[in-house]
């Protein structure tokens, strides 16, 4: 029987491409806003495009904050994409200070121009490179088949800063900010870039993630 992957629909962002990517690697996909579906899932994907505060308020309104936290604490595979990465953090500096799910200690910060890059365009909408943090191997990760320096598609104005750098799986540079562009911590894989929009190299990541977690 095919494993059931639930894409969490909290009414922010486009779920079509994430669904297509998961189907493409041979998974069964359910798009749902129901806590029960999250509880019963073999794997959960949290996508998202838009504002951090709106996302948290939608998750709260739909009663999904605790189900998500419980699901992740249960150790089953979880993938966060873009805003779905940022929401895992303690807080975001967007609109002063917004609280996140607080699963990964750290903050979410905004790109700002600097003396060296006075005209930094925000959002970053671009293909950009992912690299290995010093001493980090990708062998055991969803990037097991990706090359150092591979280009991925990014769309974001904010980036994450984890307290514990050991969770960093990739780093990316924009302007003069070198930031963590994906994390891996036990059952949690989350990335700032959009593998579902990063052509065949992105699909490899979905495939590896599914294989590593024995979903296919």
């Amino acid at each position: 029987m095919k494993k059931k992957v639930v894409i969490v629909d909290y009414q922010l962002g486009n779920l079509f491409s994430v669904k297509q990517a998961l189907l493409n690697v041979g998974l069964d996909v359910v798009i749902s806003s129901q806590a029960d579906d999250i509880n019963d899932a073999d794997a959960v994907v949290l996508p998202g495009v838009g504002a951090f505060a709106d996302a948290m308020s939608n998750l709260a309104k739909m009663g999904l904050v605790d189900p998500l936290k419980n699901y992740i604490a249960g150790g089953k595979p979880f993938m966060g994409i873009c805003l779905g990465l940022q929401l895992l953090f303690t807080n975001s500096e967007e609109f002063g200070d917004s609280k996140g799910l607080d699963i990964i200690p750290g903050t979410v910060k905004k790109f700002k121009p600097s003396p060296e890059f006075p005209v930094l365009k925000v959002p970053q909408i671009s293909w950009n490179q992912i690299g290995k943090p010093e001493g980090r191997s990708w062998d055991d990760s969803p990037l097991g088949e990706s090359k150092e320096g591979e280009y991925m598609y990014f769309v974001h104005s904010y980036y994450v800063e984890p307290q514990d750098h050991k969770v960093a799986l990739t780093e990316t540079t924009y302007g003069d900010v070198k930031y963590v562009s994906s994390i891996l911590k036990k059952n949690i894989f989350a990335c700032q870039f959009h593998p579902e929009k990063s052509a065949e190299e992105g699909l490899k990541i979905y495939k590896r993630w599914a294989l590593n977690n024995q979903l296919i």
Binding site: F16, S17, A21, Y153, E200
Partner: peptide
């Protein structure tokens, strides 16, 4: 699997929602 932008005749929030649902990014 790359971003798709769609334009032309999008007048309302519902129009936008419909093309996003159809697969536009």
């Amino acid at each position: 699997f790359i971003p798709l932008t769609v334009g032309g005749g999008l007048r309302t929030i519902q129009d936008i929602r419909d093309v996003l649902r159809a697969g536009a990014d």
